[in-house]
Amino acid sequence: MHISTGEVVELDHSLIVGRQPSVSRVLGGAMPRLIQVTSGNGDISRSHVEIRLDGWDVLLVDLDATNGTVLVREGQPSRRLNRGEEVVLRNGDIAELGDDVSLLFEDLL
């Protein structure tokens, strides 16, 4: 996963991305890695999205983000995820979080 800030994060376990990410409870499995991103205007929620590994799938889960999450997929119009919605990611998908911060997913199976 490439963050627009220049950071590259390997998807070897689940992640929570936000301006001050935290985990209140983990049900089974391993603790997700917390990835902090800067949000100068406060558009990004503290815990904005989860990137969850589910077997061979990589899921993008909106964590009830106040300003929402936009999924950009080649060949389709951009769409805002519903609060709490999860979607299976495809290679090349982009998640826009706000404050010009986006996540690009590459090399997905």
Rank of each mutant, 00 (worst) to 15 (best):
I35W: 04
L15Q: 03
V101S: 00
Q76T: 09
I35D: 13
N82S: 11
L97K: 02
G75A: 03
M1I: 15
L104V: 13
L89W: 03
W56I: 08
I51G: 06
G42D: 01
I44G: 06
L34H: 04
R79S: 10
R73C: 07
S22K: 12
T38R: 13
R83D: 11
L89D: 02
L81S: 01
V70T: 11
V23S: 14
V101T: 10
N67A: 13
N41T: 15
N91H: 13
G28P: 03
R33D: 07
G92T: 03
R90T: 06
G18P: 12
V61A: 09
D93M: 06
M31D: 13
N91I: 00
I35G: 11
A65E: 02
R33N: 02
T69P: 00
P77C: 03
E96S: 11
G6P: 09
G42V: 12
S78I: 00
A30Q: 15
H48C: 00
N91R: 10
L89P: 03
V87L: 07
R33E: 07
D62H: 04
L109S: 11
Q76L: 11
D100Y: 12
S24C: 09
P77S: 11
L104E: 11
G42K: 00
Q36M: 07
N82I: 00
L104A: 10
Q36T: 15
A30G: 14
L89K: 05
V72N: 11
E10N: 12
A30R: 10
R90K: 13
L97F: 00
S45P: 04
L108D: 08
D12I: 02
L60K: 04
V49W: 00
G75R: 03
N91S: 09
H13S: 14
I16N: 01
S14V: 11
L71M: 06
I51T: 06
P32M: 04
G6L: 03
P77D: 11
D43G: 08
A65V: 11
E96H: 12
D43W: 10
D107G: 14
E50Q: 15
V23C: 13
V26D: 05
L89E: 01
D64E: 09
F105V: 01
E86F: 09
P32R: 03
V87T: 13
I16G: 02
Q76E: 12
V70H: 10
L104R: 13
T66N: 09
L59Y: 07
R52D: 07
S24T: 08
L103D: 00
V26G: 02
G18I: 14
D64H: 11
L63V: 01
R46C: 06
V101P: 00
R83L: 05
L15T: 05
F105I: 02
L34A: 03
D62W: 07
L97C: 02
L108V: 05
G98H: 02
R90C: 08
D99V: 00
L109M: 06
G28C: 05
V58I: 15
S24G: 09
S39T: 05
L108I: 06
V58P: 12
R83K: 12
V8Q: 10
L81F: 01
S24P: 04
E10Y: 09
G18R: 09
L27I: 13
N67H: 12
G84D: 05
R90F: 07
L71V: 05
S22Q: 10
A65Y: 12
D64T: 01
D62C: 05
W56D: 11
V87M: 01
V58F: 09
T38S: 14
D43V: 08
